[in-house]
Amino acid sequence: MADVLLEGRDLTKHYPVRKGILQRTIGWVRAVDGISFTIERGKTLSLVGESGAGKTTTAKAVLLQEKLTSGTILFEGKDLSHFSPAQLKAEYRPRLGSVQQNPWSSMNPRMKVRNIIAEPLVVNKKQTKQQLQSRISELLEQVGLSAEHAENYPHEFSGGQRQRIAVARAMALNPSLVVLDEPVSALDVSIRAQIMNLLKDLQEQYNLSYLVIAHNLATVRYMSHTVAIMYLGQIVEYGEAEELFERPLHPYTKALISASLLTLPEDEDKGVEKIILRGEMPSPLNPPAGCRFHTRCGEAMPECGQSVPPLRDVGGGHKVACNKA
């Protein structure tokens, strides 16, 4: 059996929409609507989808920044809802790290790099100044910077270097799981490769698990072991990265892959056509009945508007939610 670090079971997050003087609830935004996933130790799970798919809400739920409407998160087999606040602080939060998308807004511009990296250490651990100092230098070197950089301020660094500092901060407490929310999409093309390689090296060295949120499929294929494709708060396809990219089954996955494939001029000669979806993602306030994707699906059948396709296993852990597959 695989070594599962974190498991999400049937997670839902609905936000109320309020209106009027009395702030009556007039509807619910179904940001995340019944998703389940597992993250294995030392492996990467990526959540992929367009904006509004519920990726970030899921990540926030794992980081306990959002309270779930329903569902359970199991960490090393233990249900987080049974943890007391003190237990969460001592046993769960220090095991997590997080790297945000934009390294220009994720750091306090008035703090020195030393203090940025030291913060999680100071909050969570008792240690001497020397220990702290040597840990900071160690972390900086791990991410490809040097110990002298500790005395500088964030504005003195380029985007790629800042993202390295963010990674160092996430690594400070030797976490088991790091949540990476679009870790490279704010960076320049030539710098992205550096950061992705760094993240992969760290994963190998420390047997880290990653929960990656991304919309760039090529990045996802390069980074992940398991991939979940999300659409309007639900997982429409789930499986091992290689399997999923080689044999996509859901029409939405196919369209996403088609849209992200590098178009070469030769393709036009060969008559390779891109799948162009019609319309846009419907509002999560009022998702379509039946399969949520049927309004844009090129292969939709009449029953897709009525019956909700369940996420079925089609073999080898490859799951898909489509009436046709």
Partner: peptide, 16 residues
């Protein structure tokens, strides 16, 4: 070379 390709499986990206 430093851009990951969707149609290729790669272990390590070339980085400038």
């Amino acid at each position: 070379d430093s851009v990951p390709r969707l149609d290729q499986k790669g272990d390590r990206l070339y980085s400038i």
